[in-house]
Design a protein around this nucleic acid. Sequence first.
DNA 1: GTCTATACGATGATAGAC
DNA 2: GTCTATCATCGTATAGAC
Lengths: 188, 188
Amino acid sequence: MSKRQNILDAAKNLLWEQGFEAMSPKKVMRLSGAGQGSLYHHFEGKEDLALAALTEVDSELRAAIDSIFDAGKDPMDRLYDYLNTPRGELQGCKLGRLVGEKTIIESNICTIVGAYFDYVCAHLKAALLEAKASGDLPPHLDAEAVSRSLAAIIQGGYILARGTGDARQMQMAQEGAWAMIEGLSSAH
Amino acid sequence: MSKRQNILDAAKNLLWEQGFEAMSPKKVMRLSGAGQGSLYHHFEGKEDLALAALTEVDSELRAAIDSIFDAGKDPMDRLYDYLNTPRGELQGCKLGRLVGEKTIIESNICTIVGAYFDYVCAHLKAALLEAKASGDLPPHLDAEAVSRSLAAIIQGGYILARGTGDARQMQMAQEGAWAMIEGLSSAH
DNA sequence: GTCTATACGATGATAGAC
DNA sequence: GTCTATCATCGTATAGAC
């Protein structure tokens, strides 16, 4: 495997485990086995490296989302699957976790995260609209707003879990979300 | 005003605007006008200072929560008020925002955040249970799980808003949450 | 209590040899 | 492409004078 990819993989790991500010070039070098020269030959600097690493992460996350929101599936099944995917790690969303850092907000990295959120919400909204159209959800439900709520439950679930050190908080947040969606479905 | 309080206020501002890792003793000194000697006289170090500052923040946030969840209010009104309090800042929750940082997770600071989350969820759960008892919400709704979902919507709403740079994302997440609660209320 | 001086490792990057 | 110096700056803390 090329040094470049070694560096990229190390950066991905460190971003995931420690965040952007804590991901120093030195740590990347240690973890990848590459020297300083290699790092600055392949990447312009720390932010450029993170940008490249997170572009790969973005692709991986979108692939998982595409699988959950397969257009061939029933819309309620898509929602169920999104809200029941096990999310046990206390580490948080590989992209969402980063926006707590001020440096991220001020950098180009933030656009990757924002676009990913929009991507997820678009899938959620489509499923909600289809479910409304087929009579599975009440016709006046605000699909746009609810899509944001459901995405927020996942991101916020990670926050609760990390804050309390209890991974079940995420599971409860997800269960509560489905309980509300299911309640709206069966009762209108 | 005492130097000690100046230092504490500066720390609170920096924690709120930049996070824990970015809050260096040097920045606290500049912002507070205090010298290094004062800082280390009143506090053992950076973590001790943050702990003291966030203990004050915790009290302030709990007071706001107590006001929203006034026991004299109708339970549905309490839920409505929690989900309709304007949360326009992109800065995020003064406590929840911090748990993205690895250093926080490994420190005693995390227990403050976790306890605050539990406090909020307890109030939410109580309101949900009362609403169920009075027939405003369906009897089988899982109050524990939904309380976590609603708290997660607030924390996650901040994440969405910061990631996209659009404060309205938080507002939408809150509106969607109320749409679901209200839908459950009117339809069962 | 408050200040200045000092220490030492880490950070993020550049220079130049191979 | 990859490596090893080398650098200025910052972060965190201690020492000791006033």
